[in-house]
Simulated scan of single mutants.
Amino acid sequence: MTTLRFSALAAIIATVHAFALDAVRSASAAPVLVEVRNFTTPTQCTEEDNVSFVMNSPAIQRFRVEALHPPYLSKVRGLRFPPADFSNCDFDENTPRTDPGRRFEPRKVRIYDGPDFAIEGNTYETFWRSQSVPVAVWGSVYDEFHLLQFYVKHRQAGELRETQVLVLYPPDGYWRAKPLPATQTGMNSYGSSFLIGPITEADRPVVEIADIDIDPKERTIRLRFIAGGEASVRLIEVSRQRTALDVKFRPSYRPSNVFAAGGMPGFAMLRSMYVAEDNADISRVEWRDAAGRAHHTSVADTAALKARSVRFGRVVPSRHNPDAPDIRFDAFDGPP
Results as ranks from 00 to 15, higher is better:
Gly114Val: 02
Ser7Leu: 11
Leu245Gln: 02
Ala30Arg: 11
Asp113Arg: 11
Gly313Phe: 07
Met187Asp: 11
Ser272Phe: 03
Phe259Thr: 15
Pro58Cys: 04
Leu270Gln: 09
Pro115Ala: 09
Pro70Gln: 05
Thr126Leu: 07
Val258Ile: 15
Val167Ala: 10
Ser132Gly: 11
Trp175Met: 06
Asn56Tyr: 15
Arg110Met: 06
Phe91Val: 12
Tyr142Val: 02
Val316Ala: 07
Phe312Thr: 03
Tyr190Glu: 01
Ser192Tyr: 04
Val238Lys: 00
Pro106His: 05
Val135Arg: 06
Gly313Gln: 04
Pro58Leu: 05
Val36Ile: 10
Glu105Ile: 14
Ala29Cys: 09
Thr297His: 00
Gly139His: 04
Trp128His: 13
Arg271Phe: 08
Ser52Asp: 09
Gly191Val: 03
Ala8Leu: 13
Arg176Trp: 10
Ser52Cys: 10
Ser132Leu: 07
Pro115Phe: 09
Asp301Pro: 00
Met273Leu: 13
Thr297Arg: 01
Ala260Ile: 07
Tyr112Arg: 05
Val65Ala: 05
Ala231Pro: 03
Pro82Asn: 05
Arg64Gly: 08
Asp278Trp: 14
Ala202Gln: 13
Gly101Asn: 12
Glu93Val: 13
Glu286His: 12
Gly158Asp: 04
Trp287Met: 02
Arg224Pro: 06
Asp213Cys: 03
Tyr124Asp: 09
Ala30Lys: 13
Leu270Ile: 10
Pro71Val: 11
Arg242Asn: 00
Gly292Ile: 06
Val316Asp: 01
Pro70Ile: 02
Ser239Gln: 01
Gly173Phe: 03
Ala20Thr: 14
Glu93Tyr: 13
Glu66Ile: 09
Pro336Trp: 06
Leu9Cys: 10
Thr243Phe: 01
Ala261Asn: 11
Val137His: 08
Ser193Asp: 15
Arg319Glu: 08
Ile12His: 09
Ile199Ser: 02
Gly334His: 03
Ile236Ala: 08
Thr95Arg: 15
Arg103Cys: 07
Val133His: 04
Pro171Lys: 01
Thr200Leu: 11
Glu48Pro: 06
Arg308Phe: 07
